[in-house]
Amino acid sequence: MTDRLGHKQTAAMFALLALGREVSNNELKEFAGFALTGAERTELNRREYVQSNTEKAPHRHKLTERGREWCLEELSHGRPPAPKPRTVLAAPLYAVLGEFARYLKQQNVSLDEVFGSAEPLTEEEIERRIRENYRKLVRSPDGWVGLADLRPLIGAPAEEVDVVLKKLSRAGKAHLVPEPNRKALTEKARQAAFRLGGEDNHLVRIEAL
């Protein structure tokens, strides 16, 4: 799971996610009730979650792709971060966010599709995300991972992911196969399938670089 942040940093991350663009501290203060400054800003910059333009006031901030990935992981925690005290609203809100995160994964919907993406992903970035998340999910060397589990973590439209998967397959860098036990296929797995070679493929294995 992702590293936890303090309440104010977490609020800043979700505010930038919701706004979906570069915003000034003035805009952030109007939207969220505070500006992103000092050690809290520099820590988010250091972690490469937020990119800040501090050349002139008011400073401007934008969530990075790594920051968007953090937000998706944070949604799945189901409870607010330390430190205490927490607001009365925090715990119920996180319970709702947890259900929202589970729904996104079940429906193979990325945060980019809900909030929009600040910048379109290149094929190189999509491949990087495929490899990175494959390594997170695979349970044994050269193991198979379900596309239904992999797709929601990539944060790109299905058709763009399919283009990269097809190129990797043709280059012998990825192997796609159908689920051998068709009776075990869930609706989620069927929707995430990648049609290649005249059949639906549900599992993928990525060759190491």
Rank of each mutant, 00 (worst) to 15 (best):
L93V: 11
A15R: 04
K167R: 13
Y103K: 10
N181V: 14
V164Q: 00
M1K: 15
R205I: 00
R139C: 02
R46N: 10
L93T: 13
K105S: 10
E74D: 14
A15E: 08
Y134N: 00
D3H: 15
P141Q: 09
D112C: 04
S24A: 09
R170V: 10
A184G: 06
P80A: 08
Y103L: 15
P141D: 09
E99I: 14
L147M: 13
G20H: 01
S140N: 14
T64D: 03
V88Q: 12
L16W: 02
G38L: 08
Q107A: 12
S117G: 15
R47C: 02
M1H: 15
L19Y: 06
P92N: 09
L16D: 01
T2R: 10
G172Y: 10
A12P: 00
L17G: 00
K56A: 15
E65F: 01
T10E: 07
H61V: 02
R21C: 06
E69S: 05
K56V: 14
K173N: 07
N45H: 06
L121Q: 07
R135N: 12
T42M: 07
Y103P: 00
L209K: 13
A12F: 05
R182D: 03
L44E: 01
A156W: 04
L97M: 14
G143R: 09
A18G: 04
H59S: 11
G116L: 07
Y103A: 15
E159P: 00
F34T: 06
R128Y: 12
R170P: 00
T37A: 09
V164P: 00
G197T: 11
L5A: 01
G146I: 07
L44W: 01
N45L: 08
F34D: 05
L28Y: 07
E73I: 01
E43W: 09
A12H: 01
V88N: 11
N108P: 02
L44S: 02
R79I: 10
G197I: 08
K62N: 12
E74V: 03
A91H: 08
K136D: 15
C71D: 00
D142T: 07
G78H: 02
F100E: 03
T64G: 01
L93A: 14
L203N: 04
R135P: 02
A184I: 08
L89H: 08
F14W: 07
V177E: 11
W144C: 00
M1C: 14
A39T: 12
Q107N: 10
R47L: 12
K167V: 03
E30C: 04
S76F: 06
L165F: 05
N133L: 02
K173A: 07
L196P: 00
K8T: 14
R4I: 10
L176Q: 01
F14N: 02
G143C: 12
D3K: 15
H61C: 03
E187Y: 06
E69Q: 04
G155T: 08
